[in-house]
Design a protein around this nucleic acid. Structure first.
Lengths: 137, 137
DNA sequence: TGTGTAGATTATAACTATTCTAAAGTATTA
DNA sequence: TAATACTTTAGAATAGTTATAATCTACACA
């Protein structure tokens, strides 16, 4: 309830009009206690489960792209057919379970910071992503 | 010249019939001194530049998948629209230049080995991939 | 409180990368 | 050389994503 107001403000502050659809997607992505990973397909399914009114696929894509551009969510490189997104925007890395097609967070205390002893002239580092692929024993 | 014989053997040993198309793709991928990164699209262009006879797209896909399965090449997760492949199959990491859409190898002496202090029950680590995204200053 | 307008949503068409299909071709084995 | 299993190929099919153009809505301003 209170959250809705927060989302309205949050959206407005970042220059996005607080539409019904965007607020609903905010609720789904940011109301839970835990952060999580999702594909467009996942999000689409969750929306149709939790909502009576439908949100069109185009709007889901638009909204996810807008939220990505505004830094509400992060994209994760897994190189499968589907793109994955993460509601946890802090720096962290991932396990990728190739059998379950599932991402698992690696917490800061579970990995040493990655140090790169090289610079590319004229370039700055935007992100360092570690993906640990695991499979059944 | 001599290389062709090697490729015939190499293919045969791994259970792939040494067809004209596969040998040609071997030459393109493995004859140069340096390893390199490519997308299907890149490879397709190189083939049409260096070859008189055309190789169909389906065969290029089939061959790349076969070579991937046999471990001749590696896949790189970059999460762009296109998949990238690497003729360097040793463990190593990458810079990804977001302005040029280009991968650059990170050599072993340029990065500390990544240590993961956590195990996933019933799972073994298949690979650890580090992708350092860089952009213009 | 209306009204104009820029921004948003929508259904659907279009696009692109990839996979499938089934027919024709080729390497291999006996 | 003949039989057969594997390959290649063009083109159709598929799936994820983006573009389009019409309709709708939030919001600034009168």
């Amino acid at each position: 309830m209170n959250n809705n107001l927060n989302f309205v403000q949050k959206l407005r502050i970042s220059g996005l009009r607080p539409t019904k659809q965007r607020i609903k997607i905010c609720e789904i992505l940011f109301c839970g206690k835990e952060t999580f990973h999702f594909s467009i397909n996942d999000l689409s399914k969750i929306i149709s489960q939790k909502t009576n009114e439908k949100i069109s696929l185009a709007t889901i894509y638009n909204t996810v792209h807008a939220f990505l551009a505004k830094g509400y969510i992060k994209q994760i490189a897994v190189n499968s057919e589907q793109n994955y997104y993460d509601t946890n925007t802090t720096d962290h890395h991932h396990f990728y379970d190739e059998d379950k097609n599932q991402l698992i967070d690696i917490h800061d205390n579970e990995v040493e910071p990655v140090k790169i002893n090289r610079k590319i002239p004229g370039k700055k580092i935007k992100s360092i992503e570690v993906l640990v692929k695991v499979q059944n024993n």
